[in-house]
């Protein structure tokens, strides 16, 4: 049996801006895992995601990304990071651009990826629409489509299911299944327990400046015990 290489490894990492919010994080993420990061507001969930994305330097320790292809890391921040004055097509195409290099067939390949992604998210009729005209739920679909077109090995998503009604959550989760089939791992910050149960395979809880790593089963058991 071959041992799976982790896509992400955190070794004794201290996370924060000036003072550490989370100390001595030791964790690894294997291909295909879906990790939900839980904890109260201001505890350091977003900072953890930003540190993994390379946007914040860790105060101490080592963050090793083993994404070995172009555009291997996908990111959906809380504010979604969409180009508001550009069209839906332009925004989704950014994801494809990040992962497809210059080649003879790149334009066709990008177009195919964009079309597949918007179809999966049900926004194919909005392709030419400027992003600024879309509703909150539609914006989240566009950000997800961008990640889908990118096909990253590790996707970092900060509350990308929030503000979505139940029906939209199902559409987004169904679309993301395609990424999971390709072996993408996901680390997502999430507040809604029902979304976590629907989707996650492992749980990271930040509590008392420490990151606690649970399997979904262990976490559900702890919830039952608390009740």
């Amino acid at each position: 049996m071959s041992i799976q290489q982790p896509v992400l490894e955190l070794k004794n990492v201290d996370i924060g801006y000036n003072d550490a919010l989370v100390n001595n994080v030791i964790a690894r993420v294997l291909p295909g895992e879906i990790i939900a990061v839980l904890g109260p507001s201001g505890i350091g969930k977003t900072t953890l995601i930003r540190t993994i994305a390379g946007l914040v330097e860790p105060l101490q320790g080592e963050v090793t990304l083993q994404t070995n292809k172009k555009g291997g890391l996908g990111y959906i921040p809380q504010r979604l990071g969409l180009v508001r004055h550009a069209s839906v097509r332009h925004n989704v195409n950014l994801g494809a651009k990040a992962s497809i290099g210059f080649s003879k067939t790149m334009f066709e390949e990008r177009r195919n990826r964009v079309e597949e992604a918007v179809k999966a998210l049900g926004i194919e009729d909005k392709l030419k629409e400027p992003v600024r005209r879309l509703s909150g739920g539609q914006l989240r679909r566009v950000a997800t489509a961008r990640a889908l077109a990118q096909r990253p090995q590790l996707l970092l998503a900060d509350e990308f299911l929030s503000e979505l009604d139940h029906q939209n959550v199902e559409v987004v989760i169904e679309a993301v299944q395609q990424l999971l089939k390709d072996g993408t791992s996901i680390i997502m910050v999430e507040h809604h327990i029902e979304n976590v149960q629907l989707f996650a395979t492992r749980i990271w809880i930040i509590k008392d400046n420490q990151l606690h790593d649970y399997s979904l089963k262990e976490w559900e058991q702890s919830l039952e015990e608390e009740e």
């Binding site: 946007l55 555009g71 921040p77 004055h85 990253p152």
Partner: peptide
């Protein structure tokens, strides 16, 4: 300009010219 779209392009690994052409110029076009 808003920092979130720049952070996304940096995290995704877009090159400097790609970021300028595809993110910065469209966002500040007006």
């Amino acid at each position: 300009m808003p920092s979130d779209c720049l952070e996304v392009s940096r995290a995704m690994g877009l090159s400097h010219p790609s970021t300028v052409v595809s993110v910065v110029i469209p966002e500040t076009g007006n």
